[in-house]
């Protein structure tokens, strides 16, 4: 019986490897917030995968919160050294003695297709968008260095999807993000596969022109590994202080492959893009909201 228990996870792992052979080598990026990381398989956001981020209400048009949420994640993706929860040896340059003892053999880092080097620390961020309204200082405030950005402006959704896919194949890219209105299911599948193969993390920012488009697109399934929705909440400045307080968001994990939907209320804390659970609501949000009405999205 004991042996069987030990066998099961191994079998599961083997099945997973057969199902998605490429995905196993990529690590995860923790949010650094235990309540959120706990709900994500592997303890963080999967690297080398496609993630979808939605706005809410009027922000579905502007995509401000979604952009900020993505900027925070990408900022950590590009600055934080790889903190692996799934064990993965670093594929850096290594020295090993040659047979026969004649000198040293220098093994260079494996090329990026192997999915190891060049993902964690550096690299450029390809941000594909229909109109260039991203504001550098605002991005910097969320922890994403705008100097890392390469903006690709394309008026049409299919061009943006194409540019994203190209970016997912290129070396030297840390993350790819695209602002998409209409997303065909096939396109999302292609992006997910490309992300798995290259180990580059991809983000889809859904930005809809109008309510009609939003209503049509919101319910459609796609191949993204996670689907998030970020909505603004009224800020709660300290008692007696006038003006606008720290931004507060309701972050909903609508869909997560291998995980459960969940919902948190967070406060955007500092210039590094870290989020913290909203102080007054910490109790409620550590126990994730069952979020039944989002289950259909999964």
């Amino acid at each position: 019986m004991v042996q069987e228990r030990a066998l099961l996870p191994e079998l599961r792992e083997r099945v997973r490897r057969i199902e998605r052979p490429a995905a196993t080598v990529h690590r995860v990026l923790p949010f650094g917030v235990a309540a959120i990381d706990r709900m994500l398989p592997g303890g963080g956001l999967a690297r080398g995968a496609l993630h979808e981020i939605l706005g809410a209400g009027g922000d579905e048009e502007d995509g401000a919160l979604a952009a900020a949420f993505a900027a925070g994640i990408i900022g950590r993706l590009t600055t934080q050294p790889t903190s692996a929860s799934q064990s993965q040896t670093r594929l850096g340059p290594s020295l090993s003695p040659l047979r026969g003892g004649e000198g040293l053999k220098i093994s260079p880092p494996l090329p990026s297709r192997a999915g190891g080097e060049g993902r964690g620390e550096g690299g450029l961020v390809l941000w594909c968008l229909p109109r260039p309204d991203l504001y550098g200082p605002g991005l910097a405030a969320h922890g994403l260095d705008p100097g890392r950005l390469v903006l690709v402006r394309a008026p049409r959704d299919d061009e943006i999807l194409w540019a994203m896919e190209e970016g997912l194949r290129a070396p030297g890219i840390a993350a790819v993000i695209g602002e998409i209105g209409v997303l065909p299911a096939v396109a999302s599948r292609r992006l997910q596969l490309a992300a798995e193969r290259s180990g580059i993390t991809a983000f889809l920012l859904r930005r809809w022109r109008d309510g009609g488009q939003a209503a049509r697109e919101r319910a459609l399934p796609n191949a993204a590994v996670t689907r998030w929705r970020v909505a603004a909440l009224p800020s709660q400045p300290p008692r007696g202080e006038p003006g606008v307080g720290r931004p507060r968001w309701r972050v909903e994990l609508l869909r997560c492959r291998g995980g459960e939907p969940a919902c948190w209320e967070v406060e955007v804390a500092d210039a590094t893009g870290h989020v913290s659970l909203a102080a007054t609501l910490a109790d409620r949000s550590t126990t994730p909201v069952p979020a039944e009405r989002f289950r259909r999205a999964g």
Partner: peptide
Amino acid sequence: QLGGGDKPQRPIRLFE
């Protein structure tokens, strides 16, 4: 005078 702190004071999207 804006209250200081560590709030992001510049928008993330700017309309031009």
